[in-house]
Simulated scan of single mutants.
Amino acid sequence: MRIVISGASGFIGTALSAHLLGSGHDVVRLVRRPPAGTGEASWDPAAGQLDEAVLDGADAVVNLSGAGIGERRWTKARVREIIDSRLRTTKTLTAAMGRLGTPPGTFLSQSASGYYGSSRAGLLREDAGPGKGMLATLCVDWEAAAHTAPAGVRVVTPRTGVVLSPDGGALGPLLPLLKMGVGGPLGNGRQYWPWISLVDEVSAFEYLLNSALEGPVNVCAPESADVNAIVAQLAAALHRPAFLRVPAPALRLVLGSHLAEELVLANQRMEPARLVDSGFAWQHPALADAAQWVASGGK
């Protein structure tokens, strides 16, 4: 397949590009600078500029662009940047597809577990409605923007949870602290995080590119786990203690209340119902397996 990827230099995009290339696919990365070779093409999503010829002949487009959700406090300007960096890039891609006589057959446009809001009880399958909060509103608009793709394009909006990786990723500063034996749960630790290993994340994306699934797909492992369990398993795999709990008030003070509540303290017991029903196979279906993989450096 010929696959065009936006956000290819990001955490997931880098791993996905390497995985797809290793599987024999032709990958074109969209970059915001002059292209360095035939595997790159330039665009300016902030200005809505993308030469549709870049997408001509592509089998699929994967949209992973977006400013980091938890990289810094949510000032009004930062929230605007988070929103615009997702909606503008998505609409730039769908507009370019619309200018083609034969657009790519598949548009895989990232969404997130934030769709479900920060305080939801019970299992969250794909048919659950959106929650409340900035991230929920963003994900609703983000998915709607993806569906402005031309008629006949199969649109998939993967709702990704917390991606576990030896390089940190969504674990941010927590993993280095755990390795030093000075980490611990965040808040009361009873909030569920929908987790998945990075290798399963990229495998799920490749699977979705080749499947007939469309619409929202929860991308997480089949085993549910709260933060207490995630931290305990990672610490055990690293042979380190994990008793230095970070209380919720401290997280709100350091991160800001909205960011802390919607990202770190959010409770989302997400179930990958559509992946399970369609037969996707996880390499790390259990948290203990993923924790060992992280602790071993991805080996």
Rank of each mutant, 00 (worst) to 15 (best):
P249F: 13
G172K: 09
T92H: 05
D26H: 14
M1V: 03
H258L: 14
F280E: 07
Q283E: 13
W142K: 10
R240D: 07
L177I: 11
A8Q: 07
E206L: 09
H284R: 13
S211N: 11
S109K: 05
V163K: 05
Q268W: 01
A146S: 15
V231K: 07
A204D: 13
A286V: 11
L93F: 14
T38E: 15
L138H: 10
D289W: 02
A151W: 00
G105Q: 09
L20C: 07
S257D: 11
V62D: 14
G298S: 01
E201D: 15
R252Y: 12
G129K: 03
T38V: 15
D277W: 01
V276W: 05
R86Y: 06
M134K: 00
E126T: 07
G215S: 11
A290S: 08
S109P: 04
P34G: 14
N228A: 01
T148K: 11
S224V: 12
P194I: 10
L177S: 12
R2S: 14
N228F: 00
D127E: 12
V61E: 04
T102N: 13
T90N: 09
I83A: 06
A237L: 05
E271A: 12
G189D: 06
S203I: 01
A36E: 08
L135N: 09
A288M: 00
R120N: 04
G279T: 06
N228Q: 02
S296I: 00
G68T: 14
T92A: 09
F205S: 09
A291H: 08
N188H: 13
V202L: 01
L253E: 00
V162Y: 08
H239Q: 09
A67T: 12
F280A: 10
L263I: 10
A232H: 07
A136H: 10
V163Y: 06
G101D: 10
